[in-house]
Simulated scan of single mutants.
Amino acid sequence: MSKKLSYKNALKRATEIMRDKQLVTRLIHDTKDTFQSKAKTSEKIQAVKFQLFTFIRLVRAYIKGYYREVSVKNMLYTVGVLIYFVTPTDIVPDFLPVGGFVDDAALIIWLYKQLGDEVKQFLEWESKHKQITSINE
């Protein structure tokens, strides 16, 4: 399955998941678990921890209604990236050493850059409301 097709499928699923708070909560939990697992074997994934966990906190704040200053389109992209990250079938199988996580890390970095100002605004908002967006919630 090509990376583009796999991410397109993740975007389709993102629309469904965004409609159900329980599914979003499960996705956040799965993303954290997947990160813990992948980070043990991949420096590439460890390198994008800040960006990935920023996305997790953004999605949580959005779903709970605390923060809505991000476009719906960009929220779908963000949820799509989280789905892609937790999905074991992507362009480079994760069981391959080193290369298996490059596509995950590249997609996370790409989206973080694409969201640019919206991420900066969220981080500024979050710094004033840190108790709301705790990653351990």
Results as ranks from 00 to 15, higher is better:
Lys32Gln: 12
Asp33Asn: 15
Asp33Lys: 15
Phe35Tyr: 07
Gln36Thr: 05
Ser37Glu: 13
Ser37Phe: 13
Ser37Gly: 06
Lys40Gly: 10
Thr41Phe: 13
Thr41Ile: 15
Ser42Leu: 01
Ser42His: 03
Lys44Tyr: 12
Lys44Ile: 06
Gln46Thr: 02
Ala47Cys: 01
Val48His: 03
Val48Lys: 07
Lys49Arg: 09
Lys49Leu: 04
Phe50Glu: 10
Gln51Glu: 15
Gln51Lys: 13
Leu52Pro: 05
Leu52Ile: 06
Leu52Met: 04
Phe53Tyr: 14
Phe53Ala: 08
Thr54Met: 05
Thr54Tyr: 09
Thr54Phe: 02
Phe55Trp: 11
Phe55Pro: 08
Ile56Pro: 13
Ile56Cys: 15
Ile56Trp: 07
Ile56Phe: 10
Arg57Ile: 11
Leu58Ala: 09
Leu58His: 09
Val59Ile: 14
Arg60Phe: 15
Arg60Asp: 15
Tyr62Gln: 09
Tyr62Asp: 13
Tyr62Ile: 04
Ile63Ala: 05
Ile63Tyr: 05
Lys64Asp: 13
Gly65Arg: 12
Gly65Ala: 07
Tyr66Pro: 03
Tyr67Ala: 01
Tyr67Phe: 04
Arg68Val: 07
Arg68Glu: 11
Glu69Arg: 10
Val70Cys: 03
Val70Gly: 05
Ser71Phe: 04
Ser71Pro: 05
Ser71Leu: 03
Val72Gly: 05
Lys73Leu: 10
Lys73Asp: 14
Lys73Trp: 07
Met75Trp: 04
Met75Phe: 02
Met75Thr: 00
Met75Tyr: 03
Met75Gln: 02
Leu76Ala: 13
Tyr77Leu: 14
Thr78Ser: 15
Thr78Arg: 12
Thr78Val: 15
Val79His: 08
Val79Thr: 11
Gly80Val: 12
Val81His: 09
Val81Ala: 05
Leu82Gly: 07
Leu82Thr: 08
Ile83Leu: 15
Tyr84Glu: 12
Tyr84Trp: 04
Tyr84Gly: 11
Phe85Gln: 02
Val86Lys: 08
Val86Phe: 10
Thr87Arg: 11
Pro88Ile: 02
Thr89Lys: 14
Thr89Ser: 15
Asp90Leu: 13
Ile91Phe: 13
Ile91Pro: 03
Pro93Arg: 03
Phe95Pro: 00
Leu96Asp: 04
Pro97Asn: 11
Pro97Glu: 15
Gly99Ile: 10
Gly100Arg: 08
Gly100Phe: 01
Gly100Tyr: 07
Gly100Asn: 03
Asp103Met: 03
Ala105Arg: 01
Ala105Lys: 00
Ala105Val: 00
Ala106Gly: 04
Leu107Arg: 02
Leu107Asp: 06
Trp110Asn: 06
Trp110Asp: 14
Trp110Arg: 07
Leu111Asp: 06
Leu111Phe: 04
Tyr112Ser: 05
Tyr112Cys: 05
Lys113Cys: 00
Leu115Lys: 00
Leu115His: 01
Asp117Ile: 11
Asp117Phe: 13
Asp117Glu: 14
Val119His: 01
Val119Asn: 00
Lys120Glu: 15
Lys120Cys: 08
Lys120Tyr: 10
Gln121Leu: 14
